[in-house]
Amino acid sequence: MQVGMTVNGEAHEADAEPRTLLVHHIREAVGLTGTNIGCDTSSCGACTIHIDGEPVKSCTMLAVQANGADITTIEGMAADDGTLHPMQQAFMENHGLQCGYCTPGMVMAATSLLQENPSPTEAEVRQGLEGNLCRCTGYHNIVKAVLAAAEGE
């Protein structure tokens, strides 16, 4: 069936089988591969995107469920001139990534976290990121980055 959505401000329409997962649709039909597939079982959070402003794991959603939705992926975070989003900048400055695989999902989840709670404690950041796994075990600097981004805003 025909599925229409706005992705990072641009309208996108494509055909999708009902069983097509949203993450596959974004990567293959929309052509944005910044959203990663990690565990594929809604545990790791690597595929986190924003749908109508809320954080969602796109491996556990059908593309047809997002028909008409407003989606932001990691590619939509930086400004048009390439200036990084403050959260991306904070990850860079605080060494909030090692291999980088979890990073798009971490940035999307962390941005949502600050939207709901602009000045979190360290414990609240750790709790707020419970849906995102980093297999490099780089949590310490990820938490530091999110706290730095919160302070900067």
Binding site: S42, G45, T48, E54, P55, V56, K57, T60, M61, A109, S112, L113, G128, E130, G131, N132
Partner: peptide, 9 residues
């Protein structure tokens, strides 16, 4: 329940 992403759906 689960994590923030799960709780939003």
């Amino acid at each position: 329940v689960g994590d923030p992403q799960v709780r939003h759906k």
